[in-house]
Design a protein around this nucleic acid. Sequence first.
DNA 1: GTTCCGCATGAATCGATAG
DNA 2: ACTATCGATTCATGCGGAA
Lengths: 294, 294
Amino acid sequence: MYLDIRTELINDDCLNYLKKLENNSIDLILTSPPYADQRKSTYGGVKTDEYVKWFLPISKELLRVLKPTGTFILNIKEKVIEGERSTYVMELILEMRKQGWFWTEEFIWHKKNCHPGKWSNRFRDSWERLLQFNKSKKFNMYQDAVKVPVGDWAKSRLKTLSNNDKVRTSSAVGSGFGKNVSNWIGRDTVYPTNVLHLATESSNKNHSAAFPESIPEWFIKLFTQEADTVLDPFLGSGTTSVVAKRLNRHSIGIELLPEYFTIAKHRIDKSETNKPVIDNTLPLFNIELSDING
Amino acid sequence: MYLDIRTELINDDCLNYLKKLENNSIDLILTSPPYADQRKSTYGGVKTDEYVKWFLPISKELLRVLKPTGTFILNIKEKVIEGERSTYVMELILEMRKQGWFWTEEFIWHKKNCHPGKWSNRFRDSWERLLQFNKSKKFNMYQDAVKVPVGDWAKSRLKTLSNNDKVRTSSAVGSGFGKNVSNWIGRDTVYPTNVLHLATESSNKNHSAAFPESIPEWFIKLFTQEADTVLDPFLGSGTTSVVAKRLNRHSIGIELLPEYFTIAKHRIDKSETNKPVIDNTLPLFNIELSDING
DNA sequence: GTTCCGCATGAATCGATAG
DNA sequence: ACTATCGATTCATGCGGAA
């Protein structure tokens, strides 16, 4: 059985096009907008102090089109200006809450191979924020889709059931991990944390993807099911749409610049559709954990 | 040659005692204040909505006593309230900038062993903020003191060291790799990034430290030289002072609660002084980095 | 002198129940 | 309605003692 997956690519200003979308129609919004003062030549360079003012009308539309059970993941990082971290992200969070967004969580994307460089007053920046916003406190989350391999501790720990594990049940001291220790036998995956640890993609330079495919893949698996709809209002070279299509999710990708739009369209055209999900238990980003433990 | 290192421990309210300190007299402030609504049983628990108001008078004094070339590292993390991340840290950063602080950088402390648990709407929280504030844009930073090894050799070496038993035997005090230090001489080293990857201190000890010794060790090496002065206004069980003393830095530690003060005093009394710095290039927590670059 | 194994918690969070 | 307490859930680490 094949699903009929729609992958819409729109070459337009996102604020303009978002207004055409219906209320409560999107399951996941996932985007990496142009950072303040970046991409000056392309986006006209949104100034730092104007960034919040620029973004709020967009986030207002996003709030409208998102389903009450949906999630908005915003990838963003402050720029350093005259030796100081800019504060527009903090201000944006505070203002978006006033719009009605719930700021549920802040994931950290730890970039394994961050940009090289050396400065006298700071080290290389190897992490970015992945802010999770929600429309209501009851949102869909499919945690089992992103479980990761358990650490090696389990092998030795569970080899023998200590009697204390049983004692802890009745002692009521602490939290009682021992109570269900038998549940752990044979368990080989655990739930991840809120730190994502993966490398940036550096292989292909013909398109500058904001993030590697692992990031949208993880969030799409975590917050949507097949045939749900994913939206990326700043599509760039199209990574979100490519991954959504591969995972059998409908998607809408909006990109203003023709150069990027062309790249995205080309990538989508040659990408596979309706590909059965082979493996949804082993996200790439926790490889390192086992590396260290192993 | 031995330096005469002063390690002052003060059992007092920090705001009260800070007023007695001279202007521009501290090289590094490093602290982990009680988080909002946390440690209610011991510190009384500062309410979330009053946290900024509570902290600002303290940060104002800290700004006064810090040297223009000095640095303030603040370890803090938001609490979840009714399914949402609280925003008091964002508000604190914005207010401290109004006081005159520069928000230079945000380091991430990625905790390897974060608290267990499972909830339907979020994963375990495995990171905390280490906010860097400065009084001026020209501050002292000794980057060479915290360089980490790189290369295939380091990679295999560190894998061995990640074995708990070996780490324990060779670095009982946490100062480095002890006798193995000679192995590192002549090896290539690289500057670390702004993500720190280490575990919380073990719980089997008789004191509960806010952070492991590696954290103050790294920042003390990075932002001070020998005979400089380190201040911790929320000393807790004394980790900052212990490490400062071991690294031949003067220090002032302020702790309100007699129980914690007693623990801190005991740890300082039995700790070594004027110990020559054997190894200032190998913090434990950046094992991961060599994995990445190597 | 190593390696192995048992053990005790962690700046947690949610939902239900009780006052 | 609103707050306080309590049970349930979960994973990795370092230490101490034994092999």
